[in-house]
Computed example of a mutant assay.
Amino acid sequence: MSLDIQIYNIKMTDSSTMDEMVTLPVLTTAPPDNDDDRYYKIAEDLFIAVSPIILIVGLVGNILTLVVMNRPSHRSSSVSIYLSTLAISDSLVLILDFINNWFKMNLDIKLLEMDETFCKFHRCFFDAVFTTSSWLILAVSIERFIAVWFPLKAKRLCTIKTARITCCVLPLLALACYAHRVPGWHLDKTGRCNTHPKHRNFQEIYVPWLSAVLYSYGPIVMLIVFNGLIVFRLKKMASKRDAMTSNDKSSSQERRITITIVVICVAFILLTLPLALFYIFQFAMGEFFDQRPTTALAETIVLILGLSNHAVNFFLYVMSSAGFRAEVRRVVCFCRTPTRNQTSNVNSTDKSFSTERISVENISAKVS
């Protein structure tokens, strides 16, 4: 399952695309006003307008996440390793999708058709990257499950070393799963990045199901199970915590981290499930290439939802974690120029320190 939009290979006035499996009629009379053309136009305009916003917002949020997660207060946590890697993976997804779909639609720059190596690289690496993002969310969810249900074992299993190893192994596994993309795609006689004739049946019939399982179906099922157990355990622990008179700061912090991870998992399910269901429906109905206008518009909408999943995590952290919000404020204030009040406070502090030092010197002189 790839996030490449099929309808954007359609150009009504480009004679080089007459061999496309989907073609729109070339109208020689009045401007197009039928429903088919209108749906295609809405889909194209919607993606051109929304995609840059998702890219900019997502990159800024992911960069801030990397900065916050590498500050001293978060650096010692294994969760920060997962979320930092997730921010990098999400940023790559946004960038690779943007330079393919948006460049092709708005600037008529088809990067995948310029070089066969890039065609193979994009088809393999892009799928591996966005699959890695879902596996990272699953990995951190499993860690929270262990921390909540088996706190004694968590000290041995949920370590920074384990997180680093996991974050290195997951991308390699994803690349191995999508290695078949390299021989499966090439530049055909018309110069399009297309499936290789020898591998066409496998790439167009079985690969979409494989990608859907790896990217969405498999992680979603496991996320529902693990997070359901986490929520059940948190509710059970909440009743016991209310009965306790002492305030355990460490357990409270672990609970806040767990809640944040649960929120991320719920957002992932809500934003990616429509995309996976849509592509499976397309292949089951035989409409992946021969799309109806309404199907093309629906594809754009679910694609925007899927891309949003890689841009909203920063805001989920801000919404669900007071500690993360505090760190963001510190980062923003550190980059901001001191105000007049802050400068006056610093000057007054320096003056008081100087006065105190002079007084100490005078006392010492009198004693001597």
Rank of each mutant, 00 (worst) to 15 (best):
N341G: 03
I230P: 06
T131Y: 11
R192P: 10
I165L: 03
R255T: 14
V262H: 04
M285I: 04
E44W: 00
L136A: 09
Q203E: 15
F232L: 13
I224H: 02
N227V: 05
V367P: 10
D127N: 06
V26D: 06
V22K: 14
I109A: 11
S354Q: 06
F281I: 03
V360K: 12
F202N: 02
E254T: 07
S352A: 03
A179D: 09
A365S: 10
Y82N: 07
R144K: 09
L270K: 12
R164F: 11
I54C: 02
L270M: 13
L138I: 00
V331H: 10
F103C: 08
L316I: 15
V67Q: 14
V331I: 13
M18L: 15
M244S: 13
A298G: 10
N362R: 12
T29C: 12
L175Y: 06
G191S: 04
T190Y: 14
D248N: 13
F145A: 08
L46Y: 03
A276D: 06
I142A: 07
I205C: 06
L94P: 13
N227I: 03
N309I: 06
L136V: 03
K235Y: 14
S91C: 07
D19S: 12
T245Q: 14
I56T: 09
E44H: 00
V93Q: 10
S89Q: 14
G306D: 07
N101R: 01
N341E: 11
S134H: 01
P72W: 11
E143K: 05
G61H: 05
D37L: 02
L172F: 07
L3A: 01
I269K: 02
M21I: 07
Q253E: 10
F283R: 10
F283L: 05
S2D: 11
T260F: 05
I142K: 05
C265E: 09
S344T: 03
V57G: 05
S359C: 09
A311I: 06
L138A: 11
Y39I: 00
K153A: 02
Q342R: 04
L66T: 13
I224V: 14
A139L: 02
L152P: 00
A49H: 06
S2G: 13
A311R: 02
F353A: 07
L305G: 06
E143S: 10
P151W: 02
T117K: 09
I48T: 06
A43L: 05
Q253P: 00
L210A: 10
D4Y: 01
C333N: 15
K235N: 15
V26I: 10
T85H: 10
R329Y: 13
L136I: 05
I358G: 09
I358W: 08
F103T: 00
T13L: 15
L214I: 08
R357W: 14
M69P: 09
V148A: 11
G228S: 07
Y178R: 02
V318L: 15
N106H: 02
N309Y: 13
S368P: 03
K249N: 02
L229N: 07
N362K: 14
Y279V: 09
A243W: 01
N100D: 15
L112I: 12
G191A: 00
R75N: 08
C158S: 01
N9E: 14
D108V: 03
I261Q: 05
D33M: 02
Y39S: 08
L271W: 00
S2W: 08
G191F: 03
E327N: 13
I363L: 15
K104G: 11
T190V: 12
G306I: 03
N347H: 03
K110D: 15
